Amino acid sequence: MSTASRPAPTVVAPRSMPTGQRNVVRSNDSASLWNCTLSPGWTQDEVQILRKALMKFGVGNWMKIIESGCLPGKTIAQMNLQTQRMLGQQSTAEFNGLHIDAFEVGELNSKKQGPDVKRKNNCIVNTGGKLTRDEVESRRTAHRERFEKDREVWANIVLERVDSPLVVLERKREELKGLQSELQQVLDQIRAVETTEGQPSDGDKQVGSKRQRE
């Protein structure tokens, strides 16, 4: 079979991936990038925001992310758990302060295999003893050289400030009150028209009066 007539390979999205146009896997996408599992209460859009926030502020700088207002309602524990799933490993200390793309690390971790690689919720877990401070720092140095984004990149990342869900709910409630008021005005106008049409006109009154005299 010639190269021209050979059908293009089909890339199948993981079953756990939500349906939708924005979740179509392209032929040049790495399938492992879609293996990031969502923590409860997270959407794909929120994960992308967290991904950019980690690049901008650095892993572990949770208060800066909270103060930026890009992920309203998310707690430090929730962000830390989702970061673990994006990195593909439970230990995040070795990335603290680094401006990285968590998906790049997660892609590499998803390919690791062997008898010493143990996973929980798709995250590699440390089966040995607790790392010493020097070991953590050594790994952080290696990660900085390999994954750290240039300052020009992360400093220019723009994160849109998102309103708190409670603020959005209150705004919707006020909009509903306004619509209810408009509806009541329309109903009052309809009743007024119906009442007017139900009353006899001046001409009808004159005819009725004449008939009574006859």
Score class of each variant (00 low, 15 high):
residue 28 N to D: 14
residue 48 Q to D: 15
residue 26 R to N: 07
residue 16 S to G: 10
residue 124 I to R: 02
residue 72 P to F: 01
residue 21 Q to G: 09
residue 107 E to G: 08
residue 41 G to T: 03
residue 71 L to G: 01
residue 129 G to A: 09
residue 54 L to C: 09
residue 137 E to A: 15
residue 36 C to V: 14
residue 39 S to L: 09
residue 76 I to L: 04
residue 126 N to H: 06
residue 81 L to N: 13
residue 119 R to M: 11
residue 48 Q to P: 04
residue 39 S to A: 15
residue 116 D to R: 13
residue 109 N to L: 10
residue 22 R to M: 07
residue 93 A to E: 12
residue 124 I to P: 00
residue 92 T to L: 06
residue 13 A to W: 00
residue 17 M to K: 14
residue 42 W to L: 06
residue 55 M to V: 08
residue 88 G to E: 01
residue 46 E to K: 03
residue 28 N to H: 14
residue 130 K to D: 05
residue 53 A to L: 02
residue 75 T to W: 01
residue 70 C to F: 02
residue 19 T to R: 15
residue 101 D to V: 06
residue 10 T to Y: 04
residue 130 K to V: 11
residue 26 R to M: 05
residue 110 S to L: 04
residue 119 R to H: 13
residue 111 K to C: 07
residue 17 M to Q: 14
residue 112 K to P: 00
residue 115 P to H: 12
residue 17 M to F: 11
residue 53 A to R: 01
residue 131 L to W: 12
residue 67 E to H: 12
residue 76 I to H: 10
residue 24 V to T: 12
residue 17 M to L: 15
residue 115 P to G: 14
residue 125 V to G: 03
residue 32 S to K: 09
residue 88 G to K: 06
residue 48 Q to S: 12
residue 70 C to K: 03
residue 27 S to D: 05
residue 51 R to D: 10
residue 97 G to D: 13
residue 21 Q to S: 14
residue 77 A to W: 11
residue 105 V to T: 01
residue 88 G to M: 03
residue 74 K to P: 00
residue 22 R to L: 06
residue 40 P to H: 06
residue 115 P to K: 13
residue 22 R to W: 07
residue 11 V to C: 12
residue 89 Q to V: 00
residue 108 L to K: 15
residue 12 V to A: 02
residue 64 K to C: 07
residue 35 N to A: 10
residue 85 R to T: 02
residue 62 W to N: 05
residue 21 Q to N: 13
residue 99 H to Q: 07
residue 124 I to V: 11
residue 100 I to C: 02
residue 64 K to L: 08
residue 77 A to P: 08
residue 123 C to R: 10
residue 81 L to G: 09
residue 85 R to P: 08
residue 53 A to H: 03
residue 121 N to I: 08
residue 113 Q to T: 15
residue 85 R to Q: 10
residue 110 S to A: 15
residue 56 K to F: 04
residue 45 D to I: 06
residue 133 R to W: 08
residue 58 G to K: 01
residue 53 A to P: 06
residue 36 C to L: 07
residue 54 L to I: 11
residue 63 M to Q: 12
residue 47 V to A: 08
residue 51 R to L: 13
residue 124 I to E: 00
residue 102 A to K: 04
residue 61 N to W: 04
residue 112 K to M: 10
residue 12 V to T: 08
residue 101 D to A: 04
